[in-house]
Design a protein around this nucleic acid. Sequence first.
DNA 1: ATGAGGCTTCCAGTTACTGGAGGGTCAATG
DNA 2: CATTGACCCTCCAGTAACTGGAAGCCTCAT
Lengths: 132, 132
Amino acid sequence: MNIGDVARQSGVPPKTIRYYEDIGLIRPNLSENGYRAFTESHIHKLAFLGRARALGFTIEDCRTLLSLYEDENRESMQVKAVAEDHLRQIEEKIAKLQSMRATLAELVEKCAGDHRPDCPIIEDLSPERLAK
Amino acid sequence: MNIGDVARQSGVPPKTIRYYEDIGLIRPNLSENGYRAFTESHIHKLAFLGRARALGFTIEDCRTLLSLYEDENRESMQVKAVAEDHLRQIEEKIAKLQSMRATLAELVEKCAGDHRPDCPIIEDLSPERLAK
DNA sequence: ATGAGGCTTCCAGTTACTGGAGGGTCAATG
DNA sequence: CATTGACCCTCCAGTAACTGGAAGCCTCAT
């Protein structure tokens, strides 16, 4: 199967598939004409990767998860560890963003948004000592 | 003032200050010995940038905000527009992350995390058609 | 004058792709 | 049989915002 078909069936764009090959996530065969030749198994792996990426796992996490996916003797605790770690990082990001949102929302609300220059947003960003 | 002092007073590391100069956010003078020479005003701008970055504004947003900061004739609606836009993007990011978190939390909870290979996380990532 | 610490420039690496140039391959059509 | 359009290939560069490191001046205190 050619890369275009695989892209359609896995949901992973051709460019990305080539990139995944570059970094060693998948290893398609080469056919005589120089085209990559993919199998069903490649489609599965790519779809797997697509979902893992959609859940925000890093490429390195994906590498680990893919090897666990292929490993009949994996222990679910290995998978769980990766996922829990990722979950923690997502929660940290959410916390950071929520704190930003809180500050921003407050500032935006306080800002008149008219034609005058006075602006609580600018003031908040300015070093207070200027007020001296 | 040398870059080290400015870094300490503004909270922006020397490397980053040089980078900000590179991309035209600040313009320190050059002293005879080839060192950058900063003024109070540079410290203020850098502190401003540091805060804006901490609120997640992009460098391009910072460029805009900095010019508004320096513009006595700014209209607060200009500032507000930038902030509102940024706020919207943050909210989008939060939404995406929360959806990831929900899925991940559910999967993590369902995973036994023991020595057996069965794992709801891997199953969720796997293309279902394999089940056929 | 020597050594520590600060300053300089420049190059490379980070994350995960994405776009584009330049150029072969294939299947179908005229 | 030539051409056309849709594929495919490789390689290079760019994205965001820094950060680390090498190689080499400058300055001040001993």
